[in-house]
Design a protein around this nucleic acid. Structure first.
Lengths: 104, 104
DNA sequence: CATACATATGAACAAGTATTTATATGTTTG
DNA sequence: CAAACATATAAATACTTGTTCATATGTATG
């Protein structure tokens, strides 16, 4: 039990798919921007200085992977991280990377 | 302090770079294969059914990002994960993804 | 030192993907 | 229902990147 289980090749592919989606700066910025509170598409685009279309495209990918979830409120749609797993994942990784300098 | 800090745009880029490297099935398989014990390039190639050249190329990228580290032992070079941060990161993420089905 | 073994590198190619531009869908309000 | 607002989609383009094939570098051994 001490040794980590090596994922099957299929699991590895799924895991890689998730990593790949997180591996784009624009998408990551969108995710972090939606981390604390739901944000409308327009708000994301304006605040992050991205075109509305681009934001929409990325949100579609993130939605497809169940990384974010959108709620319509009148004309606007507010996106937030899909669940706690996703947000924990992001926060954990951010910590890992921040503490990565000057070790060993 | 309860809210997660939103990384700067620069940090986000670095974080994305790490995610991007983890976002390839072949690289992930290599990393998991080297998780428990150091493995020679030839061993990786044979066990994972990949060409020696391909393994070498990927190892170079992983080395560049300080995700793995290689130790020469006579003719062979044994690769292992760079440090505990990296291995923890992988194991954590694997858990996150495995438990991702059927929540909320 | 020449041969065999192990790994690394370089060029070339194929496939994927982030971004833009233009347009469509959906929702409210007068 | 028409106009205005907010988001989504489609097609096209430019760029990145995973893989292969060929070759080079490095290391031990006879």
């Amino acid at each position: 039990m001490s040794k980590a289980a090596i994922p099957s090749q299929l699991d590895t592919t799924i895991l890689a798919e998730t990593f790949r989606l997180l591996g784009d700066p624009t998408r990551l910025r969108i995710l972090f921007f939606c981390l604390d509170e739901p944000r409308s598409v327009g708000d994301i685009a304006t605040s992050l200085d991205l075109s509305q279309s681009l934001v929409s495209h990325h949100l579609r990918l993130l939605r497809g992977a169940r990384l974010v979830r959108g709620n319509r409120q009148a004309k606007q749609i507010f996106y937030e991280l899909a669940d706690k797993h996703v947000s924990d994942m992001l926060v954990d990784m951010a910590h890992h990377v921040c503490e990565e300098s000057g070790e060993d």
